[in-house]
Design a binder for these strands. Sequence first.
DNA 1: GGTTTAACTTTGTATCACAAAGTTATAAAA
DNA 2: TTTTATAACTTTGTGATACAAAGTTAAACC
Lengths: 98, 98
Amino acid sequence: MIDFDKLDKTIHEKGRLSIMTMLASRGEWKFQELRDQLKMSDGNLITHLRCLQKVGYVSTEKELKGRKVTKYLLTRSGKKAFKGYLRLLEQIVEQGSS
Amino acid sequence: MIDFDKLDKTIHEKGRLSIMTMLASRGEWKFQELRDQLKMSDGNLITHLRCLQKVGYVSTEKELKGRKVTKYLLTRSGKKAFKGYLRLLEQIVEQGSS
DNA sequence: GGTTTAACTTTGTATCACAAAGTTATAAAA
DNA sequence: TTTTATAACTTTGTGATACAAAGTTAAACC
């Protein structure tokens, strides 16, 4: 029996799941890129990013030269948590297709 | 790019996801079995089941003889929807491990 | 008839996704 | 050097909903 208590709610929420998936698939994303790709409002996106930062899954890099640009990336802990989350998804897929 | 808009919110919620996974892995489950396995309160479980019934993913069978027992199972539409959901999970897993 | 049991309903609360509007700071234009 | 534009961020409000707890109903067994 799959242990659904282990399902990380921070990652599981649709908006943050999409963010995490993007960050996992490529090193860095600008705020703008995330917003445009995911078609989220500024407020919604930044709230989710803040939430992911607060639990330590995401960090930022600021470009100091040129226009103000913020890049977001997964932390080591974020990568680990996402891996764990994916492992649970795999279990669900496996059990669901049996 | 994965289309997260397609992610079925009815299924995605943790509680209902666990229910759907159980129903997908075995034909029928009694209310009691679901409640005990998933450690949900009566009220919470039935609310999720009602929600799944309302969108047509789950149906019930009542035993008419003996003690009152209700069994829950996936409808054809529920199986189809769950399959679609799993396909999206597979995409996430794939993209996440690239 | 009374008790137990399974399923179900109702009610209340706390959380949270999301949008919209407002704020700040910097860079380019004028 | 004032103005305008832009990117990131904050604040506020609202609606939705997960969940628990307590109450209700109906059938079966004593």
